[in-house]
Computed example of a mutant assay.
Amino acid sequence: MFREMRRKRQQLKEKECRRILACRSAGVLALSGDEGYPYAVPISYVLDGDTLIFHSAKSGHKIDAIRHCDKASFCVIDQDEIVPERFTTYFRSVIAFGRIGIVEDEKEKRRAIEVLARKYSPQQPQADVDMEIEKTWKALTILEMKIEHLSGKEAIELVNRFKEN
């Protein structure tokens, strides 16, 4: 169903893909937008097991696209070092593929926003987190993307650098 990577030496192992997803703060969510045009939007997220969690407004291009087609991909760039003398970049990135939907269950929605809040505001007292969630609750939509496939790749120079060390 999903393509195999052509340059297998540059393929990241699943464990490394998950590490990258767990530690980064933003990525680009790609959906099937209006008139079949791709719609890619930068967005913050959290990895929760085999699920990516996002927050959103209740309406807009992203929500319309998800209602039209639940297939999505999500790309995170871990490294992008420009190496001008080599006319290249030393990159490392991950793409997750899966199905995305709106969380309707109130308990699951609350749990998901708590997980997001803890990622981005880990030092905040729980009372402050609760107050912020309550303040934005009515306007809040939670999206979950169930990961079906992960693919990660790095520049060949990084592969070779790690082999030398």
Results as ranks from 00 to 15, higher is better:
A72T: 07
V129T: 03
E157L: 03
F91I: 02
M5E: 10
K163W: 09
L29P: 06
E81R: 09
E35K: 13
K58F: 03
E157V: 01
M131E: 14
K71M: 11
I66C: 02
Q124L: 15
F74A: 00
L52C: 04
E134Y: 07
V103T: 04
A40G: 10
A26L: 12
G36P: 10
A72C: 09
Q126D: 06
A40M: 05
E14M: 05
E35L: 08
V76Y: 03
E81M: 08
L21S: 00
I113E: 00
D50S: 14
A112N: 02
S25N: 12
S59L: 11
I100H: 01
S25V: 08
K153S: 08
K15F: 03
I147K: 01
E114L: 00
L143I: 06
P84H: 09
S32I: 09
A65V: 08
K15N: 07
A96S: 09
I43R: 06
A112P: 01
A22Q: 07
I142E: 10
V103G: 02
A57E: 06
A139I: 03
E81G: 02
L12G: 00
I20H: 05
R24K: 12
F162R: 15
D48N: 01
C17W: 01
R86C: 00
V103W: 04
E164S: 15
N160C: 08
W137G: 05
A72N: 05
N160D: 15
D34Y: 06
R6F: 02
T51C: 06
R99Q: 12
E14Y: 08
G60M: 02
L12R: 04
P84M: 11
